[in-house]
Amino acid sequence: MHSVIVSHLTKIYGKEKKVAVDDVSFSVDKGEIFGLIGADGAGKTTIFRVLTTLLLPDGGSASVGGLDVVKDFEQIRQTIGYMPGKFSLYQDLTVEENLSFFATLFGTTVAENYELIKDIYVQIAPFKNRRAGKLSGGMKQKLALCCALIHKPNVLFLDEPTTGVDPVSRKEFWEMLKRLKEQDITILLSTTYMDEANLCDRIALIQEGKILSIDTPANIIKSYPDVLFAVKATNMHQLLQQLLRYPERLSSYAFGEFAHFSFKGTPDTDGLVTYLEQHGLKEVMVKTADITIEDSFIKLLG
């Protein structure tokens, strides 16, 4: 069953007629974790704002839980949770006050749905009398998630929940999301971190308002068209510059401790090693690379 349906959605901003979202279509199944993956300015937030009924589309349509985002906006607001990219709780209310404020707004109590947020709330409970504005980034994020969940929504919208968050806190956050998924809550989230794509059931890679690819992470990786190699040498900068000048180069770019490289024609790794050594690189090593979502995205942006 589809929980979110987006059909030919278009949004145009301002006098300059900037197309922020360009004929975007996708659907999210109930209980699915669906990720919109793309850079700042790709149109992710605009899609979220249309789906959360905060912005009217200029073309196309969308529904959440079978309700139309334009006609049924009031009902949608009762049944969704939304965590905007920018921290939007009341900074001068305490942790506890923020939570009970949001529960009251939705006509419920913290006690009624405590079970749903318990795992997350216990981590910030020691600071329940602290003002939200005085919390660390990680704690703010946990409180915002609790407030978005307190009315037991069917669909949760998380706009870049992990931006600027360190790798350890990001891992913890994803553990929380997996537990929510088990409760059958549909989660639509956006991220600029490619490694988080693998944790979604399905993803849409988005750039300049258009969806470039939409599938499971495994299928996106499987459909990578080239043979990709990982190259290593003592000096990364020099390695990148020499790879750029190699006549048989199709693509090359830094990838952690390696450079990823693909050939125009039939791969000749011995030839590549010889070329690099002739150009002064030391300890040259070439092996087949494990393709990641980031490689797929780079290829699609190419």
Partner: peptide, 17 residues
Amino acid sequence: TGGVDPVTRRQFWELIY
């Protein structure tokens, strides 16, 4: 490089180098 796409992120590192 927070929030920047993977291609631009790499171009940025080229400037750093």
